[in-house]
């Protein structure tokens, strides 16, 4: 059984069909990339999996269980973490606090015990901080631990957002354009981190990415979307030699629009 299965999903916004009968599945331990030109439905697919939007038909299953009756806020507890295309961090909080919010679904303290800050809450808070510290170690964020997000450079924010997703200790992490807007050095770091996330932390990764260098370097399989439809699905090498993909990206041989 696959970790994540998307079957025959269709999503419409008004008159626009963002996704049409999309089917794919992600195996446990895989790095699965989604590529496609702008407006292909990549982000819609992401929002669908993380329950930020509803399909008109079709089903999404995690470990064989449908996700459609789950709310977006339930996904963290199910082990699905995500990042956002335009970085959506908690701007007024520090890096550490952002990572700690990532631990939210793992909290156990009751409402009342938090108000009196009982010893149990204290122990739990320390445990959360130790977990956050492991992420800080992993992503090399020591220098920024106590800094507010609002003052951080773009590249660092991008890393913090990945860190926040990892702090959730997910089974599956959805990375929305992890390398966009990064300098070549930062993008290279991100490439290593993405493969480390799989090998060291054992987390399955689904990512949307435009940088084909990054995609072919790290991903096991690539899904190519165009205008809401699956154009190709296979290893990076297979996909790159697929004539349909070339047509979707470059418009070579495409029929002129009426």
């Amino acid at each position: 059984m696959s970790l994540l299965e998307v079957s025959d999903v269709t999503v419409r916004f008004g008159g626009i069909t963002a996704l049409a009968d999309v089917t794919c599945s992600v195996e446990s331990g895989e790095i699965f990339a989604i590529v496609g030109p702008n407006g292909a439905g990549k982000s819609t697919l992401f929002n669908l999996i993380s329950r930020f939007c509803e399909p008109d038909s079709g089903d999404v299953r995690l470990n064989g269980r449908s996700l459609l009756d789950r709310a977006a806020a339930d996904m963290a507890a199910l082990g699905v973490a995500r990042t956002f295309q335009n970085i959506d961090l908690f701007e007024t909080s520090t890096v550490l606090q952002n990572l700690l919010i990532g631990r939210h679904a793992r909290r156990q303290a009751s409402f009342a015990s938090q108000i009196v800050f009982s010893p149990a809450v204290r122990r739990e808070e320390i445990a959360h901080r130790e977990a956050a510290e492991r992420i800080i170690d992993f992503l090399d964020l020591h220098a920024h631990r106590e800094q507010r997000i609002a003052g951080l450079p773009y590249g660092t924010r991008k890393v913090v957002e990945v860190g926040r997703a990892l702090a959730m200790e997910p089974r599956l992490v959805l990375l929305d354009e992890p390398a966009s807007g990064l300098s070549p050095e930062e993008a290279r770091d991100m490439r290593f981190w993405i493969s480390d996330i799989r090998t060291e932390l054992g987390i399955t990764i689904v990512m949307v990415e435009h940088d084909m260098g990054l995609v072919s370097a790290v991903s096991d399989r690539v899904l190519v979307l165009a205008e809401g439809r699956v154009v190709a699905l296979g290893t990076p090498a297979e996909v790159q030699s697929d004539p349909g993909v070339v047509q979707a990206f470059l418009g070579v041989g495409a029929e002129p629009e009426a």
């Binding site: 930020f52 908690f90 959730m168």
Partner: peptide, 26 residues
């Protein structure tokens, strides 16, 4: 106490970004 506990962080989370807060399980 609330501010240094998960509840206080959840408050900050919904203040800064409801979408992100949801993704964090808030």
């Amino acid at each position: 106490n609330i501010l240094r506990a998960p509840l206080g962080r959840a408050f900050l989370a919904i203040r800064d970004s409801e979408a992100s807060a949801q993704a964090m399980g808030v």
